[in-house]
């Protein structure tokens, strides 16, 4: 059924582009980082003036020329916090903060065009994010209030290269989504701090994976760089309390997998510690900046006008 509130395309629908020479020359990008090295993160807070808190996160862009069949993509996220705000009048009393978190992909975020309506993947990611943030916010500081966390995915990560068939025989899928979730948690925490919401600790998140036929743990894996990943795990981690508030892992069941799972969680915690460093730096930066602007606003006198009443 058509969404009558939006402008719809041709009634019969359109077909995605089919390329004839999916050039074989396009090789798989190689991981040039060390196994324990994360991708560079750009994080900045306070980009949405109307929101109580906001942050923008972007992973490093591999220097590749523009092409119709991109071999890699990055993650670009914008997050805004609304609240804490009073609950609507008709809702019942709640002694705790009502947190609602959602993740939405922009229509142009991935290879397949996303609809404007929320789909199951987005709902699933949103509930993971909500779980993670519930573990860090102190809810009884804000009775009778609500807090909305929204993450907009401007660009998401893909599981496989474009010239491959989706749903590969080997390995697991969904590592791209795990990366999106991990970075969503990081950007949401930065925005929460920007909104000055009381938190237990600086929550941070990281992903670790293992390639098939390999015993090395790869931190922050980029799925398009690997032919097949055997298992992957994302954690939300509170470094000061040494607590894990969110785990999501994917691996094949089997004998002796318990040890692998444990190692993988440990590796993901390492990745989370890496993001934690950047989060602290960014929060320090933004605090310094806000103090500086407040100071300069105080010294400036031209902003004051006398009102004639």
């Amino acid at each position: 059924m058509n969404d009558r509130r939006r402008i719809n395309g041709p009634a019969s629908g359109t077909q995605p582009v089919v390329f004839e020479n999916k050039s074989k020359a396009l090789g798989r990008p190689q991981r040039s980082r060390k196994p324990n090295e994360l991708r560079k993160i750009f994080l900045q807070t306070g980009l949405v003036p109307a929101a109580a808190g906001s942050a923008y996160l972007e992973l490093e862009t591999p220097s590749s020329t523009r092409s119709f069949i991109p071999t890699t993509s990055t993650i670009k996220l914008s997050c805004a916090i609304q609240g804490p705000k009073p609950l609507p009048r008709n809702s019942s009393f709640s002694p705790n903060l009502q947190l609602s978190a959602s993740i939405k992909f922009a229509p142009f975020a991935t290879r397949q065009r996303h609809g404007y309506l929320r789909d199951n993947v987005e709902r699933d990611l949103g509930s993971h994010l909500e779980n993670a943030l519930n573990g860090v916010i102190i809810p009884d500081r804000y009775p009778k209030s609500a807090l909305d966390v929204t993450v907009m995915v401007l660009e998401g990560e893909e599981d496989c290269l474009w010239n491959e068939e989706h749903g590969q025989e080997r390995g697991i899928s969904g590592v791209g989504l795990m990366n999106v979730l991990a970075e969503s948690i990081n950007v949401a925490v930065a925005a929460l701090i920007d909104a000055k919401v009381d938190c237990l600790d600086l929550l941070s998140s990281g992903v670790a994976a293992r390639a098939a036929d390999s015993e090395t743990d790869l931190l922050d894996p980029c799925p398009s760089e690997h032919e097949a990943l055997a298992c992957a795990c994302v954690v939300g981690y509170l470094p000061a309390r040494n607590e894990v508030v969110e785990v999501w892992s994917k691996m094949a069941a089997g004998k002796g997998r318990e040890q692998v799972a444990e190692d993988l969680v440990d590796a993901a915690i390492k990745a989370a510690r890496g993001s934690h460093k950047i989060l602290t730096e960014v929060i320090k930066e933004s605090l310094k900046h806000s103090i500086k602007t407040k100071h300069s606003a105080n010294t400036k006198t031209t902003n004051d006008v006398e009102m004639k009443t």
């Binding site: 969404d3 395309g9 109307a50 929101a51 805004a80 609304q82 404007y116 909305d148 929204t150 993450v151």
Partner: peptide, 24 residues
Amino acid sequence: NNLLVPNLELNTNSHPSFPANIAP
């Protein structure tokens, strides 16, 4: 007429006055 399909999305990310997850 139908070949250009412009849509502008104002979500709650951009301003608190737009509630989350509802029609435009």
